[in-house]
Design a protein around this nucleic acid. Sequence first.
DNA 1: CTTGGAAAGTCAACAAGGCTGACATATAAT
DNA 2: ATTATATGTCAGCCTTGTTGACTTTCCAAG
Lengths: 166, 166
Amino acid sequence: MDDTAGRGGENLLFLTDEQLRKGIEAMFFAYRGFTADPDRILAQMAYGRAHHRAIHFVNRAPGTTVNNLLATLGVTKQSLNRVLRTLIEDGLIESRVGTRDKRERHLFLTDEGRELEQKLSDAQRARMRAAFRKAGPEAVSGFRTVLEAMMDPELLRHFHNDRSTM
Amino acid sequence: MDDTAGRGGENLLFLTDEQLRKGIEAMFFAYRGFTADPDRILAQMAYGRAHHRAIHFVNRAPGTTVNNLLATLGVTKQSLNRVLRTLIEDGLIESRVGTRDKRERHLFLTDEGRELEQKLSDAQRARMRAAFRKAGPEAVSGFRTVLEAMMDPELLRHFHNDRSTM
DNA sequence: CTTGGAAAGTCAACAAGGCTGACATATAAT
DNA sequence: ATTATATGTCAGCCTTGTTGACTTTCCAAG
């Protein structure tokens, strides 16, 4: 409705402060919804959002190293280590010493870990699926385009390459 | 590119688990970018993201009550109070006793508060503007449609009505 | 073969910002 | 008068982030 500019050359109607504020608040409220379902599940166990993130990215790139995970998640190794330790102790993640470089630890989900991953991502995907279906393919395409343009250039690398970072 | 389904009735190509995973990670990485700039500014003062949120919504709905802010932010009053107290002490927010109902406190930004708000939202808007410009009006429309579909119904209320919640 | 440095783990201390529970106060509503 | 509401506050807890210091392991370059 707003996407036909009055003047010819530059279409600026979607770049007004009001439109930008709308976008900012949309991100804020949507992110709340985005994390709400997994958070509810995690709250019942001794885990939090940080555990979910670790599990997600280990599942996505099995055999990834701690350093890779660090860069992807953007936290300190001490912070990640605390989370990782409990997940390993609880038997959700397996840490294998590297064969080529034995300093490295390669991370894998155990059967139990995969089970929790499924449970969490099923909940998250259900909401994403509902939103995608409601919005339609065109909107989904735009959604991804804008989000990608909002990322930091380095994070963008993780967004694309992650399967090769193992 | 992916938005033409093979079969006629239901277009499901953008609802595959892989597409949903992409959407999930896009949210994760984009939110990092979204908060990065204000976070850098806040880190230099004694403030955090919670202060930013309070300032943002007080600026957006001047005179809003504590209870309204509570519902919008989705935190406990103890948590909000800690943040609000420092902002009032530091002279960024003014708390006026209600005229009709003297139990209520109406919140306003002071000149100094408006100054910080500008600084923070300028940084955040700059990134949002760059992303919007890069992605184009069509994408922006889709972006907002999907985000709105991702919100919880109640949060949706806050997204729309907030100017009337004062 | 020694040594420098990278990768990983660990310990300690701290801070932000969530949470619950309990309680106080002022005011409104019944 | 009593009850309900809005707010503030104290105390204590948890998760998850931080920094800094230190150790162990081990690859690789000299």
